[in-house]
Design a protein around this nucleic acid. Sequence first.
DNA 1: TATGAATGAGCGTTCATTCAT
DNA 2: TATGAATGAACGCTCATTCAT
Lengths: 190, 190, 190, 190
Amino acid sequence: MTKKENILVAAQELFAKYGYAGTTMKMISERAGVAAGLVSHYYGSKENLFMVAGQEMIDSMLRMLRTRTATAEDGKQAVGLFVKAYLDFTLQNQATFPTLIRCSPFSDDNPDLDRETIGEKFKLLMEEIELHLRRGIEDGSIAAVPVEETAFMIYGCIIGAVRTVFLTPYDVPGLYEEACQFVMRSLEKH
Amino acid sequence: MTKKENILVAAQELFAKYGYAGTTMKMISERAGVAAGLVSHYYGSKENLFMVAGQEMIDSMLRMLRTRTATAEDGKQAVGLFVKAYLDFTLQNQATFPTLIRCSPFSDDNPDLDRETIGEKFKLLMEEIELHLRRGIEDGSIAAVPVEETAFMIYGCIIGAVRTVFLTPYDVPGLYEEACQFVMRSLEKH
Amino acid sequence: MTKKENILVAAQELFAKYGYAGTTMKMISERAGVAAGLVSHYYGSKENLFMVAGQEMIDSMLRMLRTRTATAEDGKQAVGLFVKAYLDFTLQNQATFPTLIRCSPFSDDNPDLDRETIGEKFKLLMEEIELHLRRGIEDGSIAAVPVEETAFMIYGCIIGAVRTVFLTPYDVPGLYEEACQFVMRSLEKH
Amino acid sequence: MTKKENILVAAQELFAKYGYAGTTMKMISERAGVAAGLVSHYYGSKENLFMVAGQEMIDSMLRMLRTRTATAEDGKQAVGLFVKAYLDFTLQNQATFPTLIRCSPFSDDNPDLDRETIGEKFKLLMEEIELHLRRGIEDGSIAAVPVEETAFMIYGCIIGAVRTVFLTPYDVPGLYEEACQFVMRSLEKH
DNA sequence: TATGAATGAGCGTTCATTCAT
DNA sequence: TATGAATGAACGCTCATTCAT
């Protein structure tokens, strides 16, 4: 790994653990094993590094989500696969995923940060869900729900489950399982 | 209003708008129209002021939620009233509600803050939902769902909707309406 | 005791324990059981209170020293009684004596404080020793030592012993006893 | 001189002149000709800088004292050389020596400071005196005095003389000379 | 005499960023 | 590419003192 990559990984881990304000450029340079000045040299500012760290994560997550939902046989199954894949991703990247939480437009961390670029990426996420919903409504596997609002609600469910697991002190084993079924139940036809 | 109360309201508004790190004691004292030292004098530290600001909000919200759900005729209706009342509260306190978001155990703002006391209050919230769910399962208005996990999922839905409205740049009119129905659908019997 | 006296005693105890900078007006008012403003009201400023606290102590010490040395039969015995009485006084006022240490011109606590008035009082102390020395040289009980310098050295010995006992972590039982004899030996004729 | 050394010297001079509380980090950075943040950067905290400043001084004093007493022909002469060398050191470092006074365990400056490390160094000083005393008692040049207590008294005499010269407004020419003789007289056999 | 709310200057410290090497 | 010494603005907080009551 190059020093530049070392810095990015160190940043993803530290922002995940200590938040934006709680992470200093010095902490990042130390964990990356480089001089203090190099972090600014490569990434310009702390804010920019934070955003690059988040973008890199959302990009690889989007790729994975598209792969995992490609095999779905109908819209409902696609939604199910999406939710499952998303939750899996958080568990496979436990040490760094909270950085994406803090970077997302749903974060309450630092309202001053310019989340525009990353906000567009999250919009793609939502549109992915909408795609699956429309397919499901057409192929009859999903009830006739309002597409945009329901996409937001599905993503909202994911947010709620992920935050419970990653941020709160509450221990709710089986929450991820139930999250999948909760979403599925809300799409069912009667 | 006393100066002490002025400070608390100013804090609730500023923490809501700029986050914990983005709000300075000086900003609070200026908005409250008092000398800088008085904020520390009354509330000890910035962290403590933040927690008091959050506690005051969760307390009044809990009172309101209990009143609003008291008239429910069955468990399902109680859950519906709960969600509706919660969302109404956020709209009636638009300028200050994000402080509660940042104070909650679901916040990603500052992982170092001691949210224990306020965490207990949020636990009560969850238990309130569980109560309604159990009632609904007993009286037959709600399907046989796992109580604890579903309570977390319902609160997770609320979190997702509230964060979308208060924190993201996305404009999704009718999201709150859909949130209620989304939750209701997931509780339906088949 | 009046509130004014309460304040003085509280000040003497707290300055003794925490030093000048380490003692706040609030601490004094709390220990005295009075409102914060009353301390300034009676004693003007913190510095002045500190000086008054010291003066009150040195006055009562001077009175005691004169009484205790009045019965001496010769100069040497007077010096011995002086040293003994001084050391006794420190032990009888353990909780407050360090305030006198910090107030004295030999203190290293705060070089900005105006110790003029209290400095005069300490000069009287030295002159008291000189008196006994002159008497001893005349009556033959003491060697022909230089009076002023020796007076300072005798007081210096007292300072050294008192500081060892009150300020350092060293435990030297019998130091006060030895201090008396050390001084006596240095005055002996050969 | 490096900026780091500049800071240490500036600190030694300012702590000497204004005491611990009376010296601010800003004063130190200004006298050293560096930015405010650099002082904390190199020395961590004000307290730590104070201790490092004192340690550096006591270390160089200890080295000098051992050199100067090495040539003594008997125990009594060694004690004499020790006292003389100590007093000389204070005069050769007039601008900085009071920092050592304030740093020592005999200081009344700030009872909260952790003087443990420097206290150990001062213990070595006392043990040095004890060494010379034992030698003197064995070789017959010194009377049979209690070693530990007498060592403390000798150091106490030094403290008294040094404080008179450095801290009080009193002018006693010849005090250092007399201090040497005062100590010597108290060790004499009869 | 007595209160305690209120002030505001000044403190030690942190940290993103710059820049000569 | 890489270093790390150096900057300086901004922070949270303390506390002697004032003053209306």
